[in-house]
Design a protein around this nucleic acid. Structure first.
Lengths: 339, 339
DNA sequence: CTGTTAGCGCTTTCAG
DNA sequence: CTGAAAGCGCTAACAG
């Protein structure tokens, strides 16, 4: 850690500690001349205030905590990119924690950070439906902003994609292409985005008067081998759907694998649509139709809301819901590949 | 931030502050009975020590800084995954910073963190060849561990992949498949991994006695449109190579795009090999031969070395070079797709 | 075994 | 305009 402190500056300049402190914070009750002297020496000695002393004194850490379920997922990487930009720009620090999709880790993390961060950005783990750990944080006046996977049981700002519309649009997209049976691949009803997307999908099904033979829900798990089995059984059966709607990227990858192994052509035999931010879209052949979430934007938005609240000293955030639009991208094999 | 502090515990228990402090740190000079009483109340009131007070007192933050060039790159995401595991386990915090591949940002970050972290993990930006900012840190006794992109101008631990061997193996792999001309796509000679890989490649070229007509280096940039141009010109020319070695993922994607647009088949017309952690390998068709880096392992290793040094209070790290092996993966279109 | 006290580096009254 | 002093929460001499 650093050596040079305010005391040294003061003694070298024959000033008191408090004068130096005030000069550094550009107080109006210090002469310009003194300020200049102080600044010059501070610069020369490369003085940097000790952040822990400042935090202890001010009871503010100028630090934001981020809790996400995983990081090796391009969606979250893009979110962090957005968050980091805002955080860096406003002079905050970013502490990062991974819950690895388990409720227990999420709770431990949240419990340990109450007195080290000024605010929290969180995307809930798929296991979490209880939110008392977040509630506790709120009671300690630590503002919390949810993004992507949110809970309605907590009143605070939530930044989400228009998941209902995305689900609806995906459903309509498939149905309008004259398919005979469509399957929605669900991951977990604990995940708010899955719920919303399914609801949107069901509205599409309803609006187009599909019969119960024309659509179905396949419940998947966090175990991809298991998913491969279930989906394989389904696509090998006589009741095989000719359209798949994967609510997350991972389920689309499994679908792709199953189709390849069963020699089912995409999209000729099975039309596939997925809500994801496929990074290597350039490689896809055949390309999957995707609904892309504005991940970077989501990170920026969530961080901005939090930083603004902190700057204005408003621990109590309203129960606002900020909805960002997703984009449907239909690629064709013949298309110019984007870099 | 939190409310309950040691003072409150002390007054509620009719003990002095120091007794409580000692009891909480399980000092041997406190009776078991007192310890039990203190622990019970601490538990009940959900007492958590104020980390800033502790840091100020101990001159240690139990915080590690991580500086990477970008995050929306699966390699760095995997590295973070590994780092986070170690850091979390040993009770440290992880502050994250992005240099966005610019030297200026990297310098600013490093300058501002000297008194907020106990140690630093860094992968240098592609622009950085000057390392005085890191040198300064070291002089302030903040241990630094480099990973992936390292600098020989600083004596400290460096965790890297066996880039020379990877480059050599990639070269040999292509040459042995009977190609007539191979091009190495280079990103920047500022990047240590690019240098090493190229050196390995050149050794393969030399060992196989390739003539100057049989190999070449194509210098690429950080601008993918520019790269698309250069590579397109090359592959459309009469001097077209029939083998490409992309030293990083992005250059492989550009290669893929150019080949597709020029109707060059992979691997029939152009054999391609890339050093990368292609996440969506399942999608690749045709699949690219890849040399995969142990990114997660690298994160774990780098973090372990740093944490160990901190725990043992050894600011001065030796000039050790920890080399992790990469893995060559050759996929065929007919292969069972991995999930 | 327990209490008193000083001090980590900083900001902010209060007093000149 | 500047200085003295208190105190943020914690730990660790030192003293009993």
């Amino acid at each position: 850690m650093d050596r040079v402190n305010i005391k040294q500056l003061a003694s070298e300049l024959n000033l008191s500690i408090s004068t130096v402190s005030r000069a550094l914070s550009d107080s109006h009750e210090i002469s310009e001349e003194t300020k200049a002297r102080v600044r010059e020496l501070a610069e020369k000695l490369n003085y940097k205030p000790n952040p822990h002393a400042t935090s202890l004194r001010s009871q503010k850490s100028r630090t934001i905590g981020l809790v996400i379920p995983e990081i090796s997922n391009i969606f979250f990487a893009l979110v962090i990119d957005g968050i980091e930009e805002v955080v860096q720009q406003s002079g905050y620090q970013l502490l990062i924690y991974l819950s690895h999709e388990t409720h227990e880790k999420e709770v431990n993390i949240v419990k340990q950070i109450s007195n080290r961060v000024d605010g929290l950005l969180i995307c809930m783990s798929s296991e979490s439906n209880d939110v008392s750990h977040i509630q506790e944080l709120k009671q300690k006046n630590v503002p919390v902003v949810f993004f992507d996977r949110v809970s309605d049981r907590i009143n605070t700002v939530k930044v989400v994609t228009n998941d209902f519309e995305s689900g609806f649009n995906a459903g309509v997209h498939l149905i309008e292409r004259g398919i005979t049976k469509v399957a929605y691949l669900s991951l977990s009803m604990n995940i708010s985005v899955d719920q919303k997307r399914m609801q949107g999908f069901l509205k599409a099904v309803h609006d187009h008067n599909l019969t119960t033979e024309q659509w179905m829900i396949l419940n998947c798990t966090t175990d991809d081998d298991e998913n491969y089995q279930r989906l394989g059984d389904l696509l090998a059966s006589s009741a095989r759907p000719d359209a798949i709607f994967a609510c997350v990227e991972r389920l689309a990858i499994v679908t792709y694998a199953v189709c390849k192994d069963l020699n089912l052509r995409i999209p000729a035999d099975v039309k596939v649509i997925v809500i994801a931010n496929l990074q290597t879209a350039a490689f896809l052949d055949p390309p999957l139709t995707t609904i892309s979430q504005p991940a970077y934007q989501m990170g920026k938005e969530a961080a901005s809301v939090l930083v603004n609240a902190l700057e204005r000293n408003l621990p109590e955030l309203g129960n606002e819901r900020i909805v960002l639009p997703s984009v449907l991208i239909e690629r064709r094999s013949t298309e110019r590949v984007p870099c």
